[in-house]
Design a protein around this nucleic acid. Structure first.
Length: 368
RNA sequence: GGGUAGGUGGCGGAGUGGUCAAUCGCAUCAGACUGUAAAUCUGACGGCCUGACGGCCUACGGGGGUUCGAAUCCCUCCCUGCCCA
């Protein structure tokens, strides 16, 4: 299987610290992959990446693919060489785009339900066509069909260290019935992805990626547990937990989703992010995260501090700089937030190593 | 001096007799952002009252007029751009 190797070093209750070794370096866990959808963190140039110094990044299969970047990347010998990255890289499979470009638009929502259900803008048609063998996306008036096999193929071409199975991320507004239906597909696709992955790995002499399966099942206990058992029984190198969460059910759902997974393999909570949620998830035994929030909020003028978020457009000394050179302010804010998150995870790891309850540290990061 | 185009809310700029406190953009203010449809989106934005529905007042350069009714029509004054002398 893949060339990564994971070891849990210490537990404090369910929380754990570990090391995930890859051909491009070690990832100390818990840790977070900063989102670099098109291969680089938005707005950051090479020097900025060096300054920000993320431990891990995640690029996106769908976006690289439809933007015709994959052949170039493959030709260059993979995403590390193409972009000059020297750190471990992941790619997401495109499974999230099944939701974000489909039911996400249709239901007017992100993956976490917000309370204003009645205010959602509803779209009549799902622009994304989902069937049991794959998904048809429309992008720039062209159709793109992604299947489990295709996604794995593309991800091998991109050549990150860790790749994910192609799954169907459901909407927080999907009911049990739909989630069951989608879960059947996702499970079926997981098997197909694994098969495609192993076939490709046979022909690969160096740096083969590790494949992570994905647990789905929405907010439903039976589905999450079932998904966890099934995905956990397959020969993956690690596991992602995907899909939607209710506002306050995250802790429980993560618990269900982890229930069937082998303890010795890494668990990645897909697309989560907010600091309070990170604490919740680490306490349940999550090792890895990825999230757009630090970079996106930076672009929107928010910088993180331990005393709370600062909106640089409202904070006079920074507002002046922001107005003068907005792009630069956004770039610097991005670098700052990455460093802030890196430090957060460093402190989380240290607390677990020290055998400290995370609630103490959580209070220091008294952020919503 | 002659001709001509215009003067609208913080700015730009629609509207050209009633549905106009006045489209829209910018600025401002407030809020959001969780595997990036996102350097984005949402809301407020004349004043006063109201939790809200709503109500009242003052407003489209100044003044006067026509009309049931004017940012919109008429008269007059002031100002600005452009062209010609």
């Amino acid at each position: 299987m893949g060339k990564t190797n994971f070891k849990v070093e210490k537990y404090y209750k369910k929380a754990r610290v570990g090391v995930l070794k890859t051909p491009h370096g070690e990832i100390k866990t818990p840790n977070l992959a900063f989102v670099a959808t098109h291969g680089q963190i938005k707005l950051l140039n090479k020097a900025d990446h060096k300054k920000a110094d993320p431990d891990l990044m995640i690029a996106n299969t769908f976006h690289l693919w439809v933007n015709k970047k994959v052949p170039e990347i493959k030709k260059a010998g993979g995403i590390h060489k193409f972009f000059g990255h020297k750190i471990p890289m992941m790619t997401d499979s495109g499974g999230f785009q099944v939701f974000s470009l489909g039911f996400g638009k249709m239901h007017g929502t992100g993956k976490i339900a917000n309370k204003k259900v009645e205010n959602r803008k509803l779209k009549a048609d799902n622009p994304v066509k989902i069937s049991d063998d794959g998904v048809i996306f429309k992008y720039n008036n062209k159709k793109y069909k992604l299947t489990p096999k295709k996604s794995i193929q593309i991800q091998h071409d991109i050549g990150a260290n860790i790749i994910f199975v192609f799954d169907e991320c459901t909407s927080p507004y999907h009911n049990h019935k739909y989630n069951l239906e989608a879960l059947k597909r996702t499970n079926d696709w997981a098997v197909k992805c694994l098969k495609a992955h192993k076939t490709l790995n046979v022909h690969l002499e160096t740096e083969s990626p590790s494949l992570f399966g994905i647990v789905q099942g929405g907010i439903y206990e039976d589905l999450r547990k079932k998904s966890s058992r099934f995905i956990g029984s397959l020969d993956f190198d690690g596991f992602g937990i995907g899909g939607s969460f209710g506002e306050k059910q995250m802790k429980k759902i993560i618990g269900w989703a982890l229930s069937g997974l082998p303890r010795e393999k890494p668990r990645h909570l897909l697309g989560i992010g907010k600091i309070k949620d990170i604490f919740t998830a680490v306490e349940q035994g999550i090792d890895l995260f990825d999230c757009v929030i630090p970079a996106r909020e930076a672009r929107h003028g928010i910088i993180y501090t331990k005393k709370g978020k600062i909106n640089i457009k409202k904070f006079k000394p920074l507002a002046v700089i922001y107005k003068k050179d907005r792009l630069k302010a956004q770039r610097l804010a991005t670098i700052h937030n990455i460093k802030f998150y890196k430090n957060l995870f460093r402190e989380i790891r240290q607390a677990i190593k020290n055998g400290q309850n995370l609630s103490t540290l959580r209070k220091e990061y008294n952020l919503r």
